[in-house]
Nucleic acid binder design. Sequence first.
DNA 1: GTATGTG
DNA 2: CACATACAACGCTGA
DNA 3: TCAGCG
Length: 814
Amino acid sequence: MAQLTTYRGKRDFSRTPEPEGRVDGGEGNRFVVHKHGATSLHYDLRLEMDGVLKSWAVPKGPSLNPDDKRLAIQTEDHPLDYIDFEGVIPEGEYGGGPMIVWDAGTWAPMGDIEESFRSGDFKFRLAGEKLKGGWMLKRLKPKPGEDKVNWLFFKEHDPAASTTENILESRPESVKSGLTIEQLQPAPQKPRKPVKLEPGKLKGAREMPMPDKIQPQLATATADPPPIPGDRTPWLHEIKFDGYRTIAFIEDRQARLITRSGLDWSDRYKRLTNTFAQVPCRQAIIDGEVVVVDSQGVTTFAALQDALAESRSHDLTFFAFDLLYLDGYDLQNVALRDRKDLLRDLLAPIVSSKSAIQYSDHVEGEGSDLLGLVTEKHLEGIVSKRADARYEQTRSTTWLKTKARRAEDFVIVGYTRSEAAGGLGALGLGEWVDGTLEYRGKVGTGFDAPTLDLLLSRLQPIELERAPLPRAPKELVYVEPVYSARIHYANRTNDGSLRHAVYKGLIEPERPTNRPERRRLISDADLASVSITNPTRRLFGDDGPTKLDLAVYYGLVGDFMLPHLFGRPVTLVRSPSGKADDIFYQRHPFSGMPKSVGVFDAVNSDSEARQYLSVEDPKGYLALAQFGVIEFHTWGCHHADLERPDRIVFDLDPGEGITWRNIVAGARRVRGALEGIGLNAFVKTSGGKGLHVVVPIKPHHDWKSIHKATGAMAQAIAAGDRDTFIANMSREKRKNRIFIDFHRNARGATAAAPYSLRARPGLPASTPLNWNQLESIDAPEDLNYSSLPQILNSSGDPWAEIDEYASDLQAVGP
DNA sequence: GTATGTG
DNA sequence: CACATACAACGCTGA
DNA sequence: TCAGCG
């Protein structure tokens, strides 16, 4: 049983006021309620569970049961546990008392929690179920005689709610070079007494009137940070900010903020201007960058523009990195290090962890170490400045900027053996470039023991005799290039190899990351409109599924399937008799056809006018089950734009001797090749033994060129590995190979629609999958009429956002 | 499943 | 009346 | 050129 223990300030929450309420639990369990942080809708509650501090936002609301004393709590890693209230959430401006209550009898999907609050319409789902990042708490005992249970919704607290402190908290300490975050940004420091500033004593300082104009010094871009120089004047490396370069002129307790182009933006930066006015000096010129620090602690230009557009100057932070003038002395000929020291002392009295002005600190030593760290944090890059350099009002080589590269995924092409590291020392990486795999070097850090085990268990079964790509070093144990690794790296060498590469995970980027809510496309009325004759008729055998099973399946998956069906020419595969040898295709209107099925006019390949079918509404779709429709096949286009396909498909068909694992690996390789030319590949089972790799494209080209282009792609992939693939239809060459069938990309050709059942025993489904789900499927026939509805209900449609990933296929010549 | 053709 | 039949169609392949 | 194939 989990223990809830009192949080006793092991971490510094000095920003939060003292707890104003305390709720002591039974059995030694207690938690502390902070009223601080409450929005108009939530209390901020923190409790420590098994030593881990958890933070929750507790919605406030009317206290329906002020004498309620006991709550049940259940979270992801804690079974049901109880908290006895001895007190209640404190009285005060929010009303106090135990929180929200709802009637268990009226389940409904929960909408936006805050909106529910505003409307007073609290609707929650199930006990302990995770909802939108929060958890339900169940009040244990219903009142005697009352058949209802009360619920409290705890929303997981978003810790990324403030600015500078989150930069500090979210950055891990660097392992290399002993770099700590405090070196990147000053640790939150208490305002200090001003030290005596003596700019006139610095070497190079000149007594003169304050200039009223400064051209900011600019940095020269470099691919790599400068190496540690041999002489005694090191480089100082700062974080490069992504914002507006700004120079602050302070005079007589007034500040002017001037942009790089000389505009006076003092008013737009109101809050900063006011803060600068408090800098304890008579005159100063401070160089820096105005940024918005987002919730991840990352500065982004876009956020800054938003803040300015909305006049939210209170979101702005000024990172000060240079001091050009102070109290009668021009400092432009003073060494940078001295200028920065003086700047730090000058700002110390007013800089705190949450002040609008921050001192931009630096590190010395290997700039690439900082660059690696900055890259991990998805920051813009670093600026390296010579410690002894004077300030130059122009672009200079004493300031160098190096951009951070983003994390990317690379194909694992091999690994090195290492006894010490548990069998695996490093991964060899490759990258698809124009359909060919190129070597990109090794990654040897970032693994922990379980990761090593996982990688080894995945890679050993797919070892290769010979290298799958040129230029791979001999010491590698080669593997099928089917897995990808997420890699962070500082930059690349001239030959493309990665520098400072860090392994971040074996990731199939879950492309539809935020699963959209299930959209209800089938109403109860639609379902009620279906009538099924012979509901008990067996399909394909005496113990097979019934015709009713078929109708129920399509009823259940309709919400997920219909988006892929609507508006596309459809071909039906029917078996009204239910006999396996009595199956036929239908693509034209037929007698007795439900009138809710769509019909449109088109010409066939002989230019004859024909009518074709499409599914246009849920009723028509549901009615088809009654007509013995088992399979739905679609064209790769919509009838509204019949001649220009928007989806292409590669049907991977296993030849004799090819296992399911082989097919999975093959699909990954096809995906790699496709993504190498900028196409987004989605995968589904074909319903048989194969896989369909489907690519959404923009409908820009006609069928002829698409068919030709997909043929070229298939041939290219097959040419890259003739032992595995073949793009040729001929029968006997297919043995022990995977046939890449691209012929479904011709006009009038069809492929099984996503979620379509297949007319064979057991009614397997053509099932869209995430690429990483694919790995956990052992037998595709397990995805069938009876199992799939449940799976879909809990995980949703992995292809829900497929159309948003449509690429523009390059036009192909005649 | 339904309409139609055929003996 | 019982019974049979239609209900798709593309490009490639090897003969 | 055509039957066969997916």
